[in-house]
């Protein structure tokens, strides 16, 4: 990752978020370690799909670990923390995937959190139409964000905005969360105006991309639900549990 330091044009909130950001190679090593443990999956299940499900679960666990270290979030009671994560878990997973592809920088393949590169032709041949369509739609967003020159400070700030995107009326601690939402919006606006003055509407363009992240995450949840109904998901799957949990 690029080193970032404070200074003019770097809002304090973004600086703190950059310092909280986990190192990709540490996340990769942890997840690879978990995946090497014997699977408790169904014997009739294709090994590759079961592995992808565990990979997605472990990626979400890394996201929960990140959220627990985040300022404001760590001050909240568990009920509010759960409400926030239940609202945005699929968006955080989609955005995590999309940003990894921006860093990967190859249009013809996708990079998994474990470091493996999968050709899009392989996805087309083996993934099934629902997953293939999801991957292609995510690739379109990757191109859009690449064209917008999304950088790491903007990525961490957008991730924080996704985490705090729940309407405060569903939370016990309204004021703390509302304050976090306002501070993150201001930080992102200030940062983009200072670092990309030639692109006056970058802030609005980035927020529009979050609408697409939300829409993609809905499609991803439909895919998961379809797999669940077809009895293809592993037992004790975290994402299915998130999918079935009642929203606030």
């Amino acid at each position: 990752p690029e080193p970032f330091s404070g200074g003019p044009g770097m809002p304090e909130l973004i600086l703190q978020l950059l310092q909280l950001e986990p190192e990709e190679d540490q996340v990769r090593a942890r997840i690879l370690g978990c995946l090497q443990e014997p699977a408790k999956g169904r014997p009739d299940q294709p090994a590759l799909f079961g592995l992808l499900c565990r990979m997605a679960d472990q990626t979400f666990i890394s996201i929960v670990d990140w959220a627990r270290r985040c300022m404001v979030f760590k001050e909240l009671e568990v009920a509010d923390q759960m409400a926030l994560l239940q609202n945005c878990w699929s968006e955080l997973l989609v955005f995590d995937h999309v940003y990894r592809q921006i860093q990967h920088g190859k249009e013809g393949s996708i990079l998994l959190v474990t470091g493996q590169e999968v050709e899009l032709s392989t996805v087309a041949a083996q993934a099934g139409s629902m997953l293939h369509s999801l991957v292609l739609r995510a690739q379109e967003l990757v191109l859009q964000l690449h064209a917008l020159q999304l950088d790491r400070p903007e990525f961490v700030c957008l991730k924080f905005l996704i985490l705090f995107s729940l309407d405060v009326k569903f939370l016990n601690n309204h004021s703390l969360v509302k304050d976090a939402q306002e501070k993150a919006n201001t930080a992102l606006l200030d940062y983009t105006l200072c670092h990309y003055p030639h692109c006056g509407d970058k802030f609005q363009q980035l927020l529009l991309c979050l609408v697409e992240v939300r829409s993609l995450s809905m499609q991803a949840k439909e895919y998961l639900y379809h797999k669940h109904l077809s009895n293809e998901m592993p037992r004790n799957n975290l994402l299915i549990e998130m999918l079935q949990a009642k929203q606030t």
């Binding site: 565990r54 679960d57 472990q58 666990i61 929960v64 627990r68 568990v78 923390q81 759960m82 994560l85 239940q86 004790n236 799957n237 975290l238 549990e241 998130m242 079935q244 949990a245 009642k246």
Partner: peptide, 26 residues
């Protein structure tokens, strides 16, 4: 124990709850 109330995701609760030291096995 990470037994959760109806509708509450038990694994997520276990990941977040400060009173639980053991991480859930997923």
């Amino acid at each position: 124990s990470c037994r959760a109330a109806a509708g509450r995701p038990a694994i997520l609760y276990a990941l977040l709850s400060p009173s639980l030291t053991a991480r859930p096995s997923v």
